[in-house]
Amino acid sequence: MTTEGHVLLVEDDKFLRRACEASLRQRGFTVVTATDGEAGLRLARSEPRPEVILLDLLMPKLPGIEVLRALKADPATADVPVMILSNSSRDEDKRQAMQLGAVGYYVKANLSLKELAAQVSQLVKGHAGSR
């Protein structure tokens, strides 16, 4: 079966996880989900490697910002684009995530699933092109 790309979604909120997962699957992506930071990091390092990671910030076990730091410090995952899904619209949170290497930052209250899927699609193409 062909897929538009492998996406790892790390989000502890069931509603958002279900909505994002359904939207991406509907558009042909293969989606793996994790409900906390530790599981997310484990899945990011597993095969098949995700081509894009969607990451919440405040989660049980390991905060998203620490997951991002660990991903970027590991040569095996450093080049995987990470997009942040956060409740926080604070500039300092966005700045910190972008400084650590996130490629995008979505505030959940303004989240458009269509726009998110389009962004994921672009990132998958870019990631494939960089390998």
């Binding site: 502890d12 909120d13 069931k14 509603f15 958002l16 909505a19 919440d56 405040l58 989660m59 049980p60 409740n87 959940k108 209250a109 989240l111």
Partner: peptide, 12 residues
Amino acid sequence: LLAHRAGGSSAA
């Protein structure tokens, strides 16, 4: 943590 989680889905 819990207010953050519920706040995210209600905002979305």
